[in-house]
Design a protein around this nucleic acid. Structure first.
Lengths: 245, 245
DNA sequence: TGGCATATATGCGACGAGCATATATGCTAT
DNA sequence: ATAGCATATATGCTCGTCGCATATATGCCA
């Protein structure tokens, strides 16, 4: 088809090459009240006016993709310093009825507490529930996101499921220190299935992914558990040694 | 920063939003003569004229990203019907000195035989070797790819290493039927380390990823091994049952 | 026919997973 | 004060897989 067989793309002549709108859409995930949730924004204009969509922005000319994603989070949900990682790039020609636009999607993970603090009660934002059978408004109504955002969402969930047990995904959804019970609850919510408690504890501790802090929970109606923290790989791994006292 | 807090991006007004060149670059990987290799193309124009780059094209206005990647493969290496999967999108503002351009990268996997058949001996193409210490021309000289293509390449290698033992990555680099010894060699080359033979065989067979065909190698200078084929997940898994006769 | 290189089968010890049981600990109701 | 409770934490058992070693099978070649 093409006559040029050895060039990356034609020379800088601006007329020779098509240009596209590049958007960044962010799947902001959290586990709130034991359910996997994502923040959606109500669209104020066509197309899909009134529908719910992922928070997103158009990338500016001098802006890095990741910076645009961070800007989307800051603009739409007043969130800064969140875990943010690129997900996938969606670009079928008709995904935006206005003009050809590609979406570089990211996913962000925020602990329940940080999300509660950041989200105002705006009626333009919703903390939708992600179930095995779709996306629902907290009031129970099913919810059909704008554009191809349902597919982007599904891709994000698939991704964090796959990365759950060899990355920091689980820890990004918790405060710095946490009891193992809550880490297990996060894993079970994301996977949608219960996990064996003893194996989970042993695996987390002996693999060195987690480190005991010597501090315990307070004000629990039952025996307080030890608090653990994330132990990033590559530190001096004293992975054994229960070190409870 | 932005005043708009609830829209994905501004309305269809073409002047309101920046547009970008969108390129697709393909990391074409194969294991040839026991070494992991990638196809690079010599650039015929500025910038980086004369340097080696990943095969790539500019996406056309009505074209899907994956179709553009397939076109890059067909144009540059006469390859069709190859395994092709999206890798990552690179978009820092200055990655192309001509104008803002983002690169949606893909990786493709081709068996040694198919690659030999497709690659003409053009001096504009090279089958570079990927080592633990960089990228080398087959004649041994180190090779510094154009643009940020070295980083794209490194990302591709990292990705296939991670997907090696839970995806079809290894099989895409072999003909339809193969002895387990060759599958193990592929794995060892990609990982850069030897694997235990017995465990490897057991793992492949008992996990049901592979199925004995009942056919054996021919014309070997030693005892011919049984030929196996890839068993895609979700088929009637008779994972046990050695079924050699 | 024996040697060689590889394939294939079998056995063994170590380790981690799943599971069950026993004990520890902080709170609360009486 | 004390018993009951819900949870945490420790220990032991069985089983499957992994790494490793050994034994046997098979095709070619000198």
């Amino acid at each position: 088809m093409s006559q040029r067989a050895t060039t990356t793309y034609p020379t800088g002549d601006p007329g020779a090459v098509d240009r596209f709108v590049v958007a960044v859409d962010v799947v902001l995930l959290s586990v709130v009240d034991g359910k996997l949730r994502t923040v959606l924004v109500r669209r104020g204009e066509e197309p899909f006016s009134g529908d719910w969509a992922l928070p997103g922005v158009a990338v500016r000319s001098g802006e890095a993709l990741e910076d645009a994603a961070a800007r989307a989070l800051a603009d739409k949900a007043r969130l800064n310093e969140t875990f943010l990682e690129q997900l996938y790039t969606f670009g079928i020609p008709d995904r935006d009825p206005r003009s050809r636009a590609i979406s570089v999607s990211y996913y962000a993970l925020v602990p329940e507490l940080a999300l509660r603090a950041a989200l105002d009660e705006s009626s333009e934002l919703v903390l939708a529930v992600i179930d095995h059978d779709g996306i629902h408004h907290p009031d129970g109504r099913e919810l059909a996101p704008a554009f191809d955002h349902a597919r982007i969402l599904a891709t994000a969930v698939e991704r964090i499921r796959g990365k759950l047990d060899y990355s920091s995904v689980g820890f990004e959804l918790l405060p710095r220190r946490f009891p193992l019970r809550e880490l297990q609850a996060i894993h079970e919510t994301i996977l949608g299935q219960p996990l064996n408690k003893d194996s989970f504890r042993r695996r987390m501790i002996t693999s060195g992914r987690v480190r005991a802090t010597g501090v315990r929970e307070v004000d629990t109606p039952y025996r307080p558990a030890e608090l653990y923290e994330f132990a990033p790989p590559g530190e001096s791994t004293q992975a054994n040694e229960t070190e409870t006292r």
